[in-house]
Design a protein around this nucleic acid. Sequence first.
RNA 1: GCCCCCGUAGUUCAAUGGAUAGAACGGAGGUUUCCUAAACCUUAAAUGCAGGUUCGAUUCCUGCCGGGGGCACCA
Length: 581
Amino acid sequence: MTLQQKLESRLATAVAAVLGEPAAAPVVPVADLRFGDYQSNAAMVLAKQRKTNPRALAGDIIGRLDLTGLATAEIAGPGFINFRVLPEAFAARAEALLRDERLGVPATGAGRTVVVDFSAPNVAKPMHVGHIRSTIIGDSLARVARFLGFNVIADNHIGDWGTQFGMILHGWKTLLDRDALTKDPIAELVRVYREINASAKADPAVMDLCKAELVKLQAGDPENLGIWQQCIDVSKQGLQKIYDRLDVRFDHWLGESYYNDRLPGLVDEFLAKGLARESDGAVCVFSDGAKKPEDDPFMVHKEGGWTDNPAIIRKADGGFLYATTDLATIQYRIDEWKADHVWYVVGVPQQLHFRQVFEAAERWGKRGDFRHVGFGSILGEDRKLMRTRSGENVGLTDVLEEAVERAAAVIAEKNPDLAPDEAAEIAETIGIGAVKFAELSQNRLTDYVFAWDRMLALQGDTAPYLQYSHVRIRSIFRKLEGPCDLSGQRVALGEDAEIHLVRMLTRFGEVVPSVLDDFRPNLLANYLLDLARAFHSFFEACPVLKAEEPARGSRLALCELTSRVLSKGLDLLGIRVPERM
RNA sequence: GCCCCCGUAGUUCAAUGGAUAGAACGGAGGUUUCCUAAACCUUAAAUGCAGGUUCGAUUCCUGCCGGGGGCACCA
């Protein structure tokens, strides 16, 4: 049980004793240490309901509170109950954590299945910086959910069937350089796509040819299907290289094409059940007709009257769309995978689409906890959205390359004695870690302007700062020489820096589950920075190897525990830790 | 026109309705006979504007200002 849970449990007992009935009395960590470690505002809330004096009620509750061996409590301000955890309680908790493989993190997701839908690039187009958010945030959420005991299915819903294939097919047939395709398939595909895209934009006749190729593909033309399959294979190989480098894994790659056969039947079913109807030749799912414009964001003002903003599931020409595929995908995930939760890590601009699809799925009878985990946009220097086709866009591979180069330069300066192989490996770990951490340490909803120095920073609140903490700890254990069993080690806390370090260590079990409350890996990232700061302060203030027993063993145990929590925390963010740097 | 997201130190970002709004970079000043100075310590500096709800608002509500985005056959 976490310290927070213990306090909550004891407080609940006291509150029930005072009131004569159970009442909610949550305990939260205190932001400002001057007020203690944890606090509860229960007295203020309950006093208001009962129209009594909050400080008096808080006093009554504290009078009934048994905190033996755990903490002290006091009334503060308008009626807070502040808890200060006793050093011996912190020490006991640290000893318990040393023996706990889960490091105090409860398995809150046990027995539930969650599908995490993230990354989902379009094939035959290069990944650029705009793809980084979904990929990295989604991977981290999947890792956290897995650690919390969820049955996690990471699904890469790649765009392998859309209209862009009309262009690629036409380009393949008219522009392809076979030699170039053999040498660097991805680059050649990208070149073909860019060229054909430009000429189709300029010339409607070319666009018509592209559309004709798409129709043939969708009708099952063997030649086009063959080319399509080649494109997919080549693209997947290229994507896999980037995912390997980023240490991102998927359980499935069920792209749009996987659901292709299900779409006609799906639309028929929607029509038959009255969930959709024709409008201007298209089949649309309209929002619930009972709603009024005031309370329904689907309603739009159009041609003199209010109508709602439908999800189109079949075009007038018979083609299917994004919404159709997403509904088929939901059906599969709910019926085949028995998903309890489905999390879509997709940019905020698609919010309307997901509201429509989730509502349609619900009315269709596909019940589940569907969440659109949106994130802000990456903007260009002009503060406008980075577009896939605009030339200014920076490729994801270029970002990773540059990050690793910068890390290598710092290593050469700071630690020139490392063997070249090892230095290169460390540069990879640090460079990639820095990029990922830059993404994960901020609120996902914030828009930001892409800037090399921001994304590739190696100083300050960055992954290398965290990695360095771990490296210093490993350095101590190297000097120990020989095995060292700390599982039964007694922890004795004297210095403030030691107590503060343990305070931070005990919060790991509280922070990790909170990441999924609102899908915010940055809570974990920021926690790890606080933990690392606590460790560095401890490390400056408290000698370890040169200390006398019992402090020496106790401090070694704190180092070991810190190392484990940092490694696990970074692992949940998808960031590796080096042994030295 | 309607809807959504975002406005916090010079800059980039934090802050489940809680107390004196935290970091980092940059600025100023210090710490190395001692486990890696990629570190530590000290310091100056901010909630777009106006109302409202609340014991308490960066957070919730209303209006305005500013930035970004979405809104019928792309994904």
